[in-house]
Simulated scan of single mutants.
Amino acid sequence: MDIRTIDVHRLEIPMKGSYRASVHDFSVMDSVLIVLNTADGERGIGTVDPSPGYSRQTPSNIENALINDLLPALIEVTPQSPNKLTELLDTFEGGENAKCGIEMAFLDLYCRQRGHPLAELFGGALRQKESLNAWIGIDAPEKMGEEAKQWRNKGYKSAKLKLSGDLEIDSARIETVCEMVNPNRKGMEVRADANGAYSVSDAINLARSVEHLPLAHLEQPVPFDDLEGLARVSESTSVPVMADECLLSIRHLSSVISLKAANRVKLKPMRLGSLLSTKTGIEIAAAGGRSTVVGHGFGLSPATSTEIQLTASTRGVHRPVESVGPIKMQDEPFEPTITASDGSAVLPTGAGLGVDIVDNKLHSFTTNSTAIR
Results as ranks from 00 to 15, higher is better:
Ala243Lys: 01
Ala231Glu: 02
Val181Tyr: 05
Asn195Trp: 03
Ala194Phe: 07
Ala159Trp: 03
Leu206Arg: 05
Val222Ser: 04
Ala262Trp: 00
Leu247Phe: 11
Ala159Asn: 03
Ala262Met: 09
Arg185Gly: 05
Arg251His: 15
Glu147Val: 01
Glu235Pro: 00
Asn184Ser: 13
Tyr198Glu: 00
Glu189Met: 14
Ala172Val: 11
Ala207Ser: 09
Glu168Thr: 14
Gly155Tyr: 04
Leu213Pro: 00
Val190Asn: 03
Leu213Asp: 07
Glu228Met: 10
Asp226Lys: 09
Ser171Lys: 07
Tyr198Cys: 05
Val241Phe: 02
Arg152Tyr: 11
Ser238Asp: 14
Ile174Trp: 11
Asp202Trp: 00
Asp226Cys: 06
Glu189His: 08
Lys149Pro: 04
Pro221Trp: 09
Arg152Pro: 01
Glu175Met: 12
Arg152Ala: 15
Val222Glu: 02
Pro221Tyr: 12
Ser158Ala: 14
Cys178His: 00
Lys154Leu: 15
Gly155Cys: 07
Leu215Tyr: 04
Arg191Gln: 11
Tyr156Met: 04
Ile174Ala: 07
Val210Cys: 13
Glu219Gln: 06
Lys143Leu: 09
Glu146Ser: 12
Leu248Met: 14
Tyr198Asn: 06
Ser255Lys: 13
Thr237Met: 09
Pro240Tyr: 06
Asn184Phe: 15
Ser238Arg: 14
Asp193Pro: 01
Asp225Gly: 00
Leu167Tyr: 02
Glu228Asn: 12
His252Val: 02
Arg232Ala: 13
Met188Ala: 10
His212Leu: 11
Glu235Ser: 14
Asp225Arg: 08
Asn263Arg: 11
Lys154Phe: 10
Ser234Val: 03
Met242Phe: 06
Lys162Gly: 02
Lys154Ser: 12
Arg251Lys: 15
Leu215Ala: 00
Ala207Trp: 01
Glu189Arg: 11
Leu161Thr: 00
Glu211Val: 07
Arg208Gly: 03
Gly165Asn: 08
Lys143Asp: 10
Ser201Val: 07
Ala159Arg: 02
Glu189Trp: 05
Leu253Ala: 10
Val233Ile: 07
Ser254Phe: 09
Val233Lys: 00
Ser199Tyr: 07
His212Asp: 15
Leu230Ala: 05
Leu206Ala: 05
Leu167Gln: 07
Ile169Pro: 03
Asp244Leu: 06
Pro240Trp: 01
Ile250Phe: 13
Glu228Val: 11
Met188Asp: 06
Ala203Phe: 09
Ser199Gln: 11
Ser255Ile: 08
Ala159Thr: 02
Leu253Ser: 06
Ser249Trp: 10
Val200Arg: 08
Val222Met: 12
Glu235Phe: 10
Leu167Asn: 00
Val190Cys: 02
Lys157Asn: 09
Ala172Met: 14
Ile204Ser: 07
Ala148Ile: 08
Val200Glu: 07
Ser249Ala: 11
Gln150Lys: 15
Lys154Trp: 07
Val190Met: 08
Ile250Gln: 12
Pro183Gln: 14
Leu247Arg: 03
His217Ile: 06
Arg232Cys: 05
Asp202Val: 06
Leu218Glu: 04
Val177Pro: 05
Val241Cys: 07
Ala148Arg: 04
Glu245Arg: 07
Asn195Arg: 01
Ile174Ser: 02
Glu146Gln: 14
Cys178Asn: 05
